[in-house]
Design a protein around this nucleic acid. Structure first.
Lengths: 391, 391
DNA sequence: TTTGTTAGTAGACCTTCCTTACAAATCACA
DNA sequence: TGTGATTTGTAAGGAAGGTCTACTAACAAA
């Protein structure tokens, strides 16, 4: 007498909005196969069938199509001595296509690379901004992409760009003051000019996607990028958090030093003015220039204490976020000599002090495992995700 | 030369994990149709086709099935004078099924109701806990559900329960100290005994689902429930945030009063011990008993100032969360006479002070529009969502 | 009365997946 | 060394669901 039963689970994007055609299902299944090959390495068709829940017949069909496309190659029979017909392994051909990735986080230079499908850098380039803004900056970026595309030795899967600023899900830059971009349909423009798919996202978001895909992260994590500014990208249950105005992750301009710190002998001193026009933003104490200024000329012990003070304040800001989202993984991206020591220790201690054990006991707060290339890897993930459905 | 193009969008739960069969697509489309009828009211088949993107043929077929099931009824021809054949309207029959909803947030009594599919309360009951815990508490809840089920005048779509504690996506209570429940498969147990689908979720999560569905909310919001304790539920991009350990929304035990407040004339006084064993948790100043204690015996102006102090501190805790998630809507659920005044004003002011304008300028911080029944409505949404895919 | 527009339905067709059945290749054991 | 068990991969047939095209019904405006 009851109506059809759906499965329980409110974490999986309900409020249905788009129809599902057979071809979408097909693409989804194709992505599942690629996903498993990407993360688990070479497998047999039967393995993939077990992993995906599809039948061997269907997997065979999908693999056949992928082999035809060149994305997957046959490796030959598996050498293990098990009963039954030996499996023939297939693998993702990570050299079948290449990806162009560009990182615009730096105010001085554009960093770019050609990567294979495994995220390994094949070729690296960079170019100066020369202070260009607006359309000139778009043109320079386009030329840089063309240079990289020309350097590719394989067909291009697409181009991924990580840029500072507020960027919507379609790759339109809503605002990026550094480049003088406002409502610039960057992805569409580049895609038209280059003739390949282009994906653009905020640099903190590319960082978190890179960490999520290549950093061995679990389903939910926050990546805090510390450079000229401070930003954050958040992945929850495998989905990037966009925010109401595509501005999620804006942690650099949350107040971290307030009126209660305007006292003598305050560990961080009084609140400092911020570029955003307010005072005491997290960025005024945590951005790399601020950190370097703070420890300049101090002896090691005093420098450690100063970094710990900043870490403690960072922990105070992070605690409500970690608690509200029940995050189990927080990753720092930035100069390790500043972040990966007293600062990180103090931040973790502050978070533990200020949240319940159930929240903080299994919290991991670590440095990124991707080093300098985090942003580039993340931009590549934009393409992998957008074109192949692989994350 | 490039591979298949997927659509851009990393906010929509990628990392594919489950296969999609035609029947799933069918269920999805059925949900889309119900969803539109639920929120937009009576529509013609052609309207639904335009809204869903499906063809008129397919919608006709789906509507036919829904009419057969009794969920949808034919209303007859539309009376508007437009060219062409007049449309025949169909509508969700909100009285076709009923839902049993139970709210366990109160430590004294279980509150329950029978609701129709529009979320309107048809019958209301309550029962005391009598301090029962463990299996006895489960049995009492089961008996209460049976009483409510017997009071229903229509076939039951299902049962929804909102309970304090940590509850996973399958309705298993991981821990609920108040009831002495640890790893209790509540949904499965009740479903077996009652013979109808049962959905169980944390009470703060039911609150946010209720607000999301019936409160006219946009895609992302946070509901802060203030009662004996303080909790929060978060919906981002239409999906409930679960957290790594199903403990998302735990804001009550984030430190809100710290060592910097251990000074003379601190507006809130020094940090107070909390039931969780630590000191200065948000709950120690914001929970209803704490608020009542704080303003007891004060003249109105002093009481307002005291509430504003608490609100200010709440704003400090909320600012990083609002900023990190770029929330545009924060909703308070609890006694309006305490929350909806100086406290709320001060909280909003503090958030605005401590975040960028781009984040806070279009932030709405309001009281729930569902009043006392928020939790019950939310429990009903569990069932609507789980059984019909309607949110 | 004719023309144009919109709503809803019927039938043919396409895609995709599943089920069933089968050949091939290997191991285990008599 | 043969025989059965087991596993892999593929082929053929069928079911489900959606689209496309074509049709009828019903109304407004000219």
């Amino acid at each position: 007498m009851t109506a059809t039963t759906h499965r329980q689970g409110w974490g999986k994007a309900l409020r249905p909005t788009e129809k599902v055609l057979p071809e979408h299902a097909r693409a989804h299944h194709r992505s599942m196969v690629l996903q498993h090959l990407f993360h688990a390495g070479p497998r047999s068709r039967a393995d993939l069938a077990r992993a995906t829940g599809l039948t061997r017949v269907t997997v065979s069909d999908l693999v056949g199509a992928l082999v035809t496309e060149g994305l997957v190659t046959e490796l030959g029979a598996r050498q293990e001595g098990k009963v039954g017909k030996p499996a023939s392994l297939v693998a993702l051909d990570t050299s079948a296509f290449q990806i162009v990735a560009v990182d615009l986080a730096d105010d001085e230079r554009m960093h770019g690379a050609v990567l294979d499908l495994a995220g390994a850098v094949v070729e690296r380039r960079s170019a100066t901004h020369d202070g260009r803004t607006g359309q000139a900056a778009v043109d320079a970026l386009l030329a840089f992409c063309q240079e990289l595309a020309a350097a590719a030795t394989r067909p291009l899967l697409g181009v991924g760009v990580g840029s500072p600023g507020v960027i919507d899900a379609h790759g339109t830059v809503v605002e990026a003051p550094n480049r003088g971009w406002f409502d610039v349909p960057l992805a569409a423009t580049l895609s038209d000019a280059l003739g390949v798919p282009v994906h653009v996202a905020n640099d903190a978001n590319t960082a978190v996607l890179g960490e999520f895909t290549f950093g061995g992260a679990s389903g939910s994590l926050l990546v805090l990028t510390v450079g000229e500014g401070v930003g954050a990208g958040i992945v929850l249950d495998g989905a990037l958090v966009q925010g109401a105005r595509h501005a999620a992750g804006e942690l650099g301009h949350v107040t971290a030093v307030d009126e209660r710190d305007d006292v003598e002998h305050a560990p961080l001193g009084p609140a400092q003015p911020c570029a955003c026009g307010r005072r005491g933003c997290l960025e005024t104490v945590l951005a790399v220039p601020a950190l370097r200024r703070r420890i300049a000329g101090l002896d090691p012990a005093a420098a450690d204490a100063a970094l710990a003070s900043v870490g403690h304040r960072l922990g105070i800001v992070l605690a409500p976020v970690i608690s509200a989202l029940n995050l189990s993984e927080v990753v720092f991206s930035g100069p390790a000599e500043l972040l990966d020591g007293p600062l990180r220790d103090a931040a973790l201690a502050a978070v533990r002090e200020r949240t319940m054990p159930v929240i903080s006991s299994d919290l991991e707060l670590r440095m990124t495992s991707l080093g300098e290339d985090g942003a580039l890897s993340g931009a590549a993930v934009l393409v992998l995700s957008g074109q192949l459905g692989v994350t």
